[in-house]
């Protein structure tokens, strides 16, 4: 059985925000909601490093543990999904989530939160696959079509990987071996740090 994972390779991410755009397009997310975002540490400085982050579909997910209406469920593939019909928009999942993944469209007066929206690993929600309701509430269901999340598919540098944990880690391990390590390594260090460049 597959265990779905995202992995963002910090040595490759160039902060193009292609994944963010792909996600918005694939899922037609509500205004003001971004299921994925790119964060750059040291922006504009030597050694800036970027990472794309969304829901990481935690094992033993903190959001599930605090939701007052218990509306989360985990699929067989380890994807964490939730039921928007039950969600009351309390925001607890956002307080608990390590990655700031849950998003809330503003709904009604006084900044009241609407139903929580987050990355579904392009796996839709509890509604029937590819139904109108699923599309409207949760966006794409590419998993049911045998495809992987669009953000990773569209990543220009293939920094963002999505898929079964074994496959993702195989790809990453292979990369790390080619890339080398320490001062000889390719990647951000090579780009930003002349001292780190190989002598040849």
């Amino acid at each position: 059985m597959a265990r779905m994972k995202f992995l963002c390779d910090a040595e490759r991410c160039i902060e193009c925000n292609g994944c963010v755009t792909a996600c918005k397009n694939a899922n037609e997310v509500p205004w003001g909601v971004n299921r994925r975002r790119v964060v750059t540490i040291n922006d504009g400085e030597p050694n800036e490093i970027s990472l794309s982050v969304a829901c990481m579909h935690c094992t033993d997910a903190p959001c599930m543990a605090v939701c007052p209406v218990d509306c989360f469920y985990q699929t067989e593939d380890g994807i964490v999904l939730h039921n928007k019909d039950t969600c009351i928009g309390c925001g607890y999942c956002l307080y608990a989530c390590p990655f700031g993944a849950p998003q809330f469209p503003q709904d009604g007066a006084f900044g009241q939160r609407g139903k929580m929206d987050k990355c579904t690993f392009c796996a839709g929600g509890p509604e029937e696959d590819h139904s109108e309701a699923e599309r409207a509430k949760y966006g794409a269901n590419r998993i049911a079509e045998g495809k992987l999340p669009l953000c990773a598919e569209m990543c220009s540098t293939k920094a963002l990987l999505a898929g079964d944990a074994d496959d993702v880690s195989d790809i990453y391990r292979e990369r790390v071996i080619y890339r080398g390590s320490n001062s000889g390594a390719w990647g951000q260090n090579l780009a930003y740090n002349p001292a780190g460049r190989k002598s040849n």
Binding site: R37, V39, Y95, A96, G100
Partner: peptide, 19 residues
């Protein structure tokens, strides 16, 4: 860090206090 995505704490990668 910096994030082009607007929103409170969008630049924070790890929410330390959530746990």
């Amino acid at each position: 860090g910096y994030s082009a995505t607007p929103g409170n704490e969008a630049g924070v990668l790890i929410n330390r206090s959530g746990d």
